[in-house]
C-alpha cells in the first residue's frame, strides 16, 4: 500500500468515527445504521455473484435466518448477544452449505430460480411456524446487545457498534478478494470448465462462496434484529432480495467497496422515495436496466473510469 492510500484511509476512518457529531438528526443516523447493515449483506452477495458468478435472488432468506436465530436465542434462552450472533451466523452458513448442493448442478437462470425458491421457503416458514416465529406478527422486544455491562440502545451507540462490524467485514472480504481465493472465485465466474481443468475444485469453491455470502447475511441479520427491536416476515420478502441484488449491481459487484456505495445509494434512495411506495420498485428496475447496459461495473466502475481519464489528461499535460 502506498503512502497516499494510507492517508486517504486515515481520513476516511476519522470521518467515519466523527460522523455522529455532524449528524444530529436521529432519523438520518438511523438510515446510516441501516446502510451499514445492508452493506454487510451486499458484501457477501458481491463475493457470491460478483466474484464467483453465482447470482442469488434469495439473499433475504439468509438475512432472515440470521435475524430470527440471533433474536430467538437472545429472547428464549437469554443468551448474551455475541453468543447468539455466533449461533446465528453458524446456522446461516449451514443454510448456505445446503443451498450450495443444488447450486452445484445449476447455473444461470436455473440457479437464480433455485435461490428465489430458497428465499420464499424461508419466508413461508417464518410466516407459518407460529409457535416459534410468532407468524405474521413477528418478534417484538428483541433485547439490546450489551458489551461489558454497557447496553447499546441509542442510534449513536448503534452507529459505533455497527461500524466496527462493517469495517471488519470490508477488511476480511477485501483480504479474501485480493488473495488466491478471490482470484479462483473470479476464474470460476469466467470459465468454470477451464478452472476445473487447471486443477480448481470448482464445487468446493462454489460451496465456499455460498457459505461466505451466507455468513455475511447472517451477521447482518443478527445486527438487524437487535437494532430494530422488532422483526416480522415482511422484512424478508422477494422485494428485499431484489433490493440486495440492486445494491450489489448498481454499486459495482466486482469490488468490495461497490457494496458500500450500492447499499448507501439504494438505502438513501428508497427512503427518499418512501412517499411513492408503489413506484419504488419500478424506479429500481429502471436504474438496474440502465446500470447493466451503461455501467456494467456499477458506480464504482464509473468512478474508476473518471479517475483514469483524469490521470491520462494530467500525463498528457505534463508531456506538453
Amino acid at each position: 500500500m502506498n503512502k497516499n492510500k494510507k492517508i486517504y484511509l486515515l481520513i476516511i476512518l476519522v470521518l467515519l468515527l466523527t460522523l455522529p457529531l455532524f449528524v444530529s438528526n436521529l432519523y438520518y443516523l438511523h438510515i446510516i445504521n441501516l446502510v451499514g447493515i445492508y452493506t454487510l449483506v451486499t458484501i457477501g452477495l458481491n463475493i457470491l455473484s460478483g466474484y464467483t458468478g453465482q447470482t442469488s435472488m434469495g439473499q433475504a432468506g439468509f438475512f432472515a435466518v440470521g435475524t430470527y436465530v440471533t433474536s430467538l436465542m437472545m429472547m428464549n434462552f437469554d443468551l448474551p448477544f455475541f453468543l447468539a450472533l455466533l449461533i446465528g451466523v453458524i446456522l446461516t452458513s449451514i443454510f448456505g452449505l445446503i443451498i450450495s448442493i443444488p447450486a452445484m448442478k445449476l447455473s444461470g437462470p436455473y440457479l437464480v430460480l433455485a435461490t428465489v425458491g430458497f428465499g420464499e421457503i424461508v419466508r413461508l416458514v417464518l410466516l407459518n411456524w407460529t409457535p416459534v416465529t410468532k407468524g405474521a406478527a413477528g418478534l417484538t422486544g428483541i433485547p439490546f446487545p450489551e458489551i461489558f455491562g454497557l447496553q447499546i440502545k441509542t442510534e449513536k451507540q448503534f452507529y459505533y457498534f455497527i461500524i466496527i462490524f462493517v469495517i471488519l467485514g470490508i477488511y476480511i472480504a477485501g483480504r479474501i478478494a485480493k488473495s488466491k481465493i478471490g482470484r479462483t472465485f473470479s476464474a470460476i465466474r469466467e470459465d468454470d470448465l477451464a478452472a476445473e481443468a487447471m486443477g480448481v475444485n470448482v464445487a468446493g469453491y462454489k460451496t465456499a462462496a455460498f457459505v461466505i455470502s451466507a455468513m455475511f447475511a447472517g451477521l447482518a441479520g443478527g445486527l438487524f434484529g437487535t437494532f430494530s427491536g422488532v422483526t416480522s416476515p415482511d422484512s424478508f420478502t422477494f422485494d428485499d432480495s431484489i433490493s440486495f441484488l440492486c445494491m450489489s449491481v448498481i454499486g459495482g459487484n466486482k469490488t468490495i467497496i461497490g457494496a458500500v456505495v450500492g447499499a448507501f445509494v439504494l438505502t438513501v434512495l428508497s427512503e427518499a422515495l418512501r412517499v411513492f411506495q408503489g413506484t419504488r420498485l419500478i424506479i429500481y428496475g429502471f436504474i438496474l436496466i440502465f446500470t447493466v447496459i451503461y455501467m456494467p461495473n456499477g458506480l464504482v466502475g464509473i468512478i474508476e473510469n473518471l479517475k483514469s481519464k483524469i490521470l491520462m489528461k494530467k500525463e498528457n499535460k505534463s508531456m506538453e
Binding site: 482470484r183 481443468a197 487447471m198
Partner: peptide, 25 residues
C-alpha cells in the same frame, strides 16, 4: 495439463492472474 481448441481463458482477468490460476494446485 491442457489447452482448449476454442481458447478458454478467464477473459476479464489479467494475463498474470490467468497464469496464476495455472499454479492453483
Amino acid at each position: 495439463s491442457r489447452t482448449f481448441q476454442n481458447i478458454r481463458l478467464f477473459k476479464e482477468m489479467t494475463v498474470l492472474d490467468n497464469v496464476l490460476i495455472g499454479q492453483h494446485v
